[in-house]
Design a protein around this nucleic acid. Structure first.
Lengths: 185, 185
DNA sequence: GAAAATATGTAGACCGATCTATTTAGGAGT
DNA sequence: ACTCCTAAATAGATCGGTCTACATATTTTC
């Protein structure tokens, strides 16, 4: 693939990612993807011959990877597990607020929309969540209940992010942050 | 409104509720609502003259009320706050599994889809969440951090429900249940 | 209390817009 | 020169929404 091809492919994916994150699968209309990315319709089906599901699937995995990288950075610069999770929550709250309450979890909306409709997309979402749980778990090494705790913290983060977006306020994320220590004691 | 009219209105709402809960706003196509409820298109716009947003809005508030009632029943039959929340989690897990991983939170999908698109629907979702948080809070009376705790538990429930639907497994709900005591200590 | 008049609800054809996807032809990159 | 990629027209399905004709209750009138 030539350089230009790679670039437009990336531009299409980024645009899709952004639209999906804002309003889910159905808000990412192909016309909007085209408009937002500047790529023509033909390129879309050249780079993603299996159509919209492939496009959304790849963009979800890509967003999952990006979020995982952000977690890794935060993990490295945190002294404790509690500090790490607080950093994640703060990061997500900032991102959500700065985007005008648009950018919450890049996977959640599609996960809920497609859980009963598209097996490939359901699996993509499931895998992203599994990878995030593993990343959290790695920061809890040594605890006897690390697995349970990792899933619980992930649920807490996802739930708080959902409530924050629904209320258009970072209050839920802040309240949850305050309760974290009880969980990580 | 005559009896027959009231009945079809209810049938339309129930069908919408079910479709929305399964796959969100866009999965509840008006054609599917018509097919599922048996009501003709004309009746739909007779009973809901403001169109789809009114229909979905009412069905969300209705679902929120129903869930709130279920909470109230569980609250009455529980000896402690921990027992109550565990009961809620078990109830939700059963409901989700029995529906073939379709029926999670009846509000979450629309909340995420419409947070940045439709003000009336965003507000409807926000209000339902507020009412649920208040119901949880009522069961935590006396604790100094009851407000924070109620929101945290609601986030935990919503997050676990999201993960469970995404993975098509009750494992996240079960793991979270195990960690609850640490939070409610 | 029967007939007329009005309100309530049902039924489905139809509209323009928008959706994803396909096709075909030719320009750009290397 | 040859592949890679773009570009736009178009197909066919489905979307939410509107419209008119019809049926069924419910009230009014005499």
């Amino acid at each position: 693939m030539g350089q230009k091809g790679t670039a437009t492919r990336a531009r299409i994916l980024t645009a899709t990612q952004e639209l999906v994150e804002t309003g889910g699968y159905f808000s990412a209309g192909l016309n909007q993807v085209i408009a937002a990315s500047g790529a023509p319709r033909g390129s879309l089906y050249f780079h993603f011959p299996d159509g919209k599901d492939q496009l959304v699937g790849e963009s979800i995995r890509r967003a999952g990877q990006a979020m995982g990288d952000a977690f890794a950075d935060l993990a490295e610069s945190s002294a404790s597990a509690a500090e790490f999770v607080e950093g994640v929550l703060r990061h997500l709250a900032d991102r959500l607020e700065e985007s005008g309450w648009q950018k919450g979890c890049p996977v959640a909306t599609v996960a809920l929309e497609m859980a009963g409709a598209s097996d490939p997309l359901q699996q993509a979402c499931s895998e992203v969540y599994t990878s995030w749980a593993a990343a959290l778990r790695a920061r809890l090494e040594g605890r006897p209940d690390a697995d349970d705790l990792a899933v619980t913290i992930l649920a807490l983060i996802e739930g708080a992010l959902l409530l924050a977006k629904a209320h258009r306020s970072r209050e839920p994320l802040d309240r949850v942050t305050g309760q974290l220590r009880a969980l990580l004691r």
